[in-house]
Nucleic acid binder design. Structure first.
Lengths: 244, 244
DNA sequence: TCATCTACGTGCGCTAGCATACAGACGACA
DNA sequence: TGTCGTCTGTATGCTAGCGCACGTAGATGA
């Protein structure tokens, strides 16, 4: 396991950047700009014209939609497995969702035009990003399904597991209030669900710190959505090295 | 308004095909295969390797996810505004959802390889399909949001409006049971919501036929999700003619 | 015209999750 | 060490939507 905090940031911590052929990586490397991403930072609001894509390394970002009445719901999450700002590649340049940091850390950003130039070469970079886009679509789809049919506890498990997969440690720095905001449920609902999981011995926590003790237990308690998303990411992005 | 049934199928009824520059359209036209799509036809199951993309003209297809316990939930819908099978372009070649026809009609299909060849030229076809993909993502996202926060009645309005936008008439051939299956709710819930809408004078129906009388009324009764999706489709795909 | 099937209406008890309110408890910081 | 703001636990009612069950009315075909 990698030490979460002491480690020096490196672009290769991002799985997509790590999967690029050397030639391409070296071509874009000079343009990668290290960015510190503190908790709560908003990378873009709904409707903003995006100027960069962000390859995250240690930070985790939530894409969520803010409703007219102020309520919100998470659409998907992005961490070291992916990239933020695919709408630049799709040609829309903006989305209806907002992107905010829920786990502080770092990432590397690339200017819109640099990204576009590389994407439009049509090689491995394009293939990689399109595959990631499909994986992201699967994640969003599964959010829809999960919101429809699954309990708060199941959704909490799914969310914690997906978040955990993006971190080097098994401790999450998160308040229940924050999680509730992500899932679009009441804080009390999270308190109850988290209480159950703690009593069952799957997690333990103190104010703002959740430690996952029994990962397998959590997976059993989660709905199928977690596995669906994870398997699809694996299928689409695991054998990237062979793509060159 | 176009006559729904008597009309001869033509590829240009599909908005994406209609938006293509003449040169490109004529290049692929010989490969377009007219397909009749009866109610209930399954174009692909979860996990199937896709062999074609489908440009729909009069049919409407639902992308939905079937859960382990047999329940289901719609992820998005596709009609004459779009194309079915973007996962071919994304490189995944399959998805976790199934695609089934909920409004009978026609469409044109294109073999995987023909589609890929054209897409990989990187011109207007690629730009068009990527923009459509982003619009589809917005639709899926909004499904997630809607499932989280909105009432069955609001969701029904959204769904009917989105379906209506894909049809030339204002009559839908659909049972309440079918709609319930799409939305992932009970049939009784649809009965109740539809009853309210009928009493309010927005729709009228007889067994399996829903006629929308007051479209604006429906929009007022729907949640914001309908407008968000519609606006985003408009923004991303409306000025396609100018793209050449 | 009748039989039958399918779609639609309705009622009843139940539960998850909501809104609101309040109390205790941890931890940062002075 | 004490204070205070924030986070967490818990209680009470309320409502939307669920599961189940049954009745009725269009449609369809012999």
């Amino acid at each position: 396991m990698v030490s979460p905090l002491s480690e020096q940031p490196s672009p290769k911590q991002n799985h997509l950047l790590a999967a690029l052929p050397t030639e391409i990586f070296e071509r874009i490397a000079p343009y990668l700009e290290l960015i510190k991403l503190p908790l709560g930072e908003v990378l873009y609001e709904s409707g903003d014209q995006l100027q960069h894509v962000y390859f995250l390394t240690s930070a985790i970002v939530s894409l969520n939609y803010l409703m007219e009445n102020g309520a919100s719901a998470e659409i998907a999450g992005v961490g070291n497995e992916g990239v933020l700002g695919v709408s630049i590649l799709m040609g829309g340049n903006t989305t209806t969702s907002r992107a905010s940091v829920h786990t502080a850390g770092h990432g590397y950003r690339l200017k819109r035009q640099v990204m576009m130039n590389e994407f439009n070469r049509g090689g491995p970079m394009m293939a990689l990003l399109l595959r990631y886009t499909q994986a992201l679509m699967t994640q969003i789809s599964q959010t829809a399904v999960c919101n429809r049919h699954h309990s708060v506890e199941q959704q909490l498990c799914r969310w914690l597991l997906l978040t955990l997969d993006r971190l080097p440690s098994n401790e999450l720095i998160l308040t229940q209030e924050l999680i509730a905001g992500m899932l679009g449920v009441r804080r009390e609902g999270i308190t109850e669900a988290a209480g159950n999981l703690q009593r069952a011995g799957f997690i333990s926590y103190r104010r703002g710190h959740i430690t996952v003790i029994d990962r397998l237990g959590m997976e059993g308690r989660s709905c199928e959505c977690y596995k669906v998303v994870k398997n699809e990411f694996h299928r689409l992005l695991n054998d990237l090295g062979r793509h060159e």
